[in-house]
Design a protein around this nucleic acid. Structure first.
Length: 280
DNA sequence: CATCACCTGCTA
DNA sequence: TAGCAGGTGATG
């Protein structure tokens, strides 16, 4: 079953919590009601939903957010929300769309279309990694002589938009850069390689339908399968895919950097090569 | 610069 | 029961 919402008119909307990370915009359900859904776009990890009347819904799914689409039968229409289903819309064309977010780290905002560019959450965002403005030189320029780790730099959405914990680990492995390496110590050639690998891993992940972790599914309900292609993420203790194994390589290691896991291969990603042994 | 806080759910 | 989970703004 394929469900889509573009062109639909919102016949009913309801909220079932005061908000997610922040309170819902005042009167959200009422404002949504009666509007036509004109289109969808994306900026970094934000989903932008353009509505009639010059309004845009700015949506972020945080860590645990999901959008559930269905075509309920007549009898099911208006049924009570599922657990953690904090926002529900139904359309005159018969679709139902629920926003489920157990941890409530997501966010929903409502802005005039003219104010999207200057929205406080969007205005400082870096270039799209698959776009023309992103390359090794951009990364090198943003790194400057900073001492922050390359891991933290890549997760900074002002530097490049849309990278998260999984794809940063994967890109750093493919570029053979240690996640704790100081951003300012990485040379131009390495940054070129890194930018190339960031694009490659994202393109491969998109082609594979994304990474189904816990319960992520594509809009049609199909599972993504890129999680099977992860080379280091979530593979602590497993053999490195590019090393011969013990005794020369003990496999994938996990470290914690500012509260988040990083996975890498110490042999491929240069602990002794150019970092010193204190970073393992 | 790193760490904390915000939440719930699952697993070792 | 502790620790960990796809994110990010606020804090020190």
């Amino acid at each position: 079953m394929r469900v889509h919402l573009e062109g639909h008119t919102i016949s009913r909307a309801s909220t079932h919590h005061t908000g997610l990370r922040w309170p819902f915009p005042p009167g959200l359900a009422t404002v949504l009601q009666g509007r036509r859904i004109d289109g969808f776009s994306r900026r970094g990890k934000y989903i932008l939903i353009t509505l009639s009347g010059g309004l845009v819904v700015v949506l972020h799914l945080g860590m645990s957010g999901r959008v559930l689409l269905s075509c309920p039968t007549e009898a099911e229409r208006g049924r009570p929300p599922a657990r953690h289903e904090h926002l529900v819309i139904e359309t005159a064309q018969g679709a139902r769309c629920g926003l489920v977010d157990p941890r409530r780290f997501g966010m929903v905002d409502l802005v005039p279309v003219t104010a999207v560019e200057t929205h406080r959450l969007l205005s400082g965002m870096g270039p799209e990694p698959l776009g023309n403005r992103f390359d090794g030189a951009w990364l090198a320029a943003r790194a400057g002589r900073r001492r922050t780790s390359i891991k933290a730099l890549l997760l900074d959405q002002r530097v490049v938009a849309g990278l998260g914990n999984i794809y940063v680990s994967e890109a750093l492995f493919r570029a053979r850069i240690h996640p704790a390496q100081a951003a300012g110590d990485i040379n131009a050639e390495q940054y070129e390689k890194l930018a190339t690998e960031i694009r490659a891993v994202l393109e491969e992940a998109i082609a594979a339908g994304g990474s189904s972790l816990r319960d992520y599914v594509q809009p049609d309900g199909e599972l993504g399968y890129f999680q099977h292609a992860w080379r280091v993420y979530g593979r602590e203790g497993e053999g490195c895919p590019d090393c011969p194994g013990p005794p020369s390589c003990d496999g994938v290691v996990r470290i914690t950097q500012s509260g988040r896991s990083s996975f890498f291969c110490p042999r491929q990603q240069g602990v002794e090569k150019d970092l010193g042994k204190d970073l393992s």
